[in-house]
Amino acid sequence: MTWLLEPDTTAEKLLLMVVGVAVFVAVMGLILFLVDRPKRVPSWVVALGFVGVPLAFLAYGLLRPGLITLWQSFFNRNGTEFVGVDNYVTAFTEGQFQKVLLVTVAWVVLAPLLSTLIGLGYAVLVDRTRFEKLAKALVFVPMAISMVGASLIWKFVYEFRPDQAGIQQIGLANQVLVWIGLPPQQFLIGQPWNTWFLIMVMIWIQTGFAMTVLSAAIKAIPDDIVEAARLDGLTGMSMFRYITVPSIRPALVVVLTTIAMGTLKAFDIVRTMTAGNYGTQVVANEFYSQAFQQGNKGLASALAVVLFVLVIPIIAYNVRQMRMAEEIR
C-alpha cells in the first residue's frame, strides 16, 4: 500500500487519482443522503459531515506542520539532540540575529505606516475629482504585479554602473542622479539605507491596496455627517481630522494590520534583490537560509515560531477592533 503515499509509476498515479475521486464521490453521496433525511439524523451530524472533512484536511495541512515546527525548534541542527530553548536564546542574543530582528522591525513599522499615509492622502486628494478613476487605477496597478516581478523592476531602477567615461547608467535612479550632477550610488549595497530602498518596493505595492480600501471607507461616510460638520464651520484639515479620520478608523486598522502581516512575511523582495546580503536580511528570509542553505533545522524552526508569535498580537488587535466596530454599529 506504499503506492498510496508515494506513487512512482504512471499506473500507480492514475490509480491514486481514481481512488481519490471515488472517495470524494462516496463522501459527498453520504452527506447528501443524510441531508435528504433530516428527521432521522441529528443536525449536528449533518453539519459535521459538511465541515468535518475540510477541517480534518486543514488540521493536517496547517496544524500538523505548525506542531512539527514547534517540536523541531527544541532540537539541534540535525534534529538528533534535545537542546531546549537554546535556539531561541541564539535568535535573541547573537548579534547576527539581533540585526535581523531590528531590520524586520524597521520593515513592520515603516512599510505599513507609509503605505497607509500615502494611500490615505491620495484617496482624499482624488476623491470626487474629474480623473478619479484614472488616478486610482495608476496607483492600483502595482498590486497586480507579483512581489518577484516588482522586485525585478526595482532592481533595474537601482542598477549601478561605475562612474567612468563612456559608461552610461541604465538604472533610472542613478541616471537621475547623473542628470542633476551627483555621482551614481550603489543603492542595494550601502548600509543601512539599502533596507530603506527595499522597503520602498513594498510601499509601492501596498499603497494601491491602502488607497482602495480607504477610498471606499471615505465614500461610505454618511452625507448628513459631512453636511453637519460643514454647517459647524469645519473645512479642509479640520474636516479631515475631526470627521474623515474618526469615521474611517476601522478601515485604517484593517489596512495597517493587513500590510503589517504581509510585511512580516516579506521574503520575495529581499530574496530577489539582495538575497539577504549587505545587512538586509529579515526573519522570513533568515529561517529559509538557515533551513535550506545552512542545514540548521532547529534554529530555522525557532525563527519560524518567532515569526508566528509576532503575527499573533497583530491578528488579535485586528479582531478586537473589528468587534468593537460591530458593537458600535
Rank of each mutant, 00 (worst) to 15 (best):
I68G: 01
I68L: 12
T69H: 03
T69S: 14
W71P: 00
Q72Y: 00
S73L: 01
F75L: 00
F75E: 00
F75A: 00
F75K: 00
R77Q: 09
G79D: 00
G79R: 00
T80M: 00
F82A: 00
G84F: 00
G84P: 01
G84R: 00
N87F: 00
Y88N: 01
A91C: 05
F92H: 06
F92M: 10
T93L: 12
Q96D: 06
Q96L: 13
F97I: 02
Q98Y: 05
L102V: 10
L102S: 13
V103E: 01
T104R: 01
A106W: 08
W107R: 03
V108M: 14
V109N: 09
V109W: 04
V109K: 10
L110T: 13
S115F: 06
L117W: 05
L120P: 02
L120F: 11
G121W: 09
Y122W: 13
Y122M: 14
Y122K: 06
A123C: 08
D127K: 13
D127G: 07
F131Y: 11
F131W: 12
F131Q: 06
K133M: 10
L134E: 04
A135F: 07
L138D: 03
V139E: 03
V139F: 07
V139H: 03
F140E: 04
F140T: 12
V141D: 03
S146L: 07
S146K: 08
G149W: 09
A150G: 14
S151D: 08
S151F: 07
L152F: 13
I153W: 06
F156A: 11
V157D: 04
V157W: 04
Y158L: 10
Y158G: 06
Y158R: 10
F160W: 15
R161E: 10
R161P: 02
R161L: 05
P162H: 10
Q164Y: 09
Q164A: 14
G166L: 14
I167V: 15
Q169Y: 10
I170Y: 11
G171K: 01
G171P: 02
N174C: 11
N174K: 11
V176G: 04
L177E: 04
V178Q: 12
W179V: 09
I180Q: 05
G181N: 09
G181K: 09
G181H: 10
P183V: 13
P184F: 13
F187G: 02
L188A: 09
I189T: 11
I189E: 08
I189H: 05
I189A: 13
G190M: 09
Q191W: 15
P192W: 12
N194V: 09
T195M: 15
L198V: 12
M200Y: 06
M200R: 12
I203N: 02
W204K: 07
I205Y: 03
I205F: 08
M211A: 15
M211W: 04
T212S: 11
T212E: 07
L214A: 10
S215W: 05
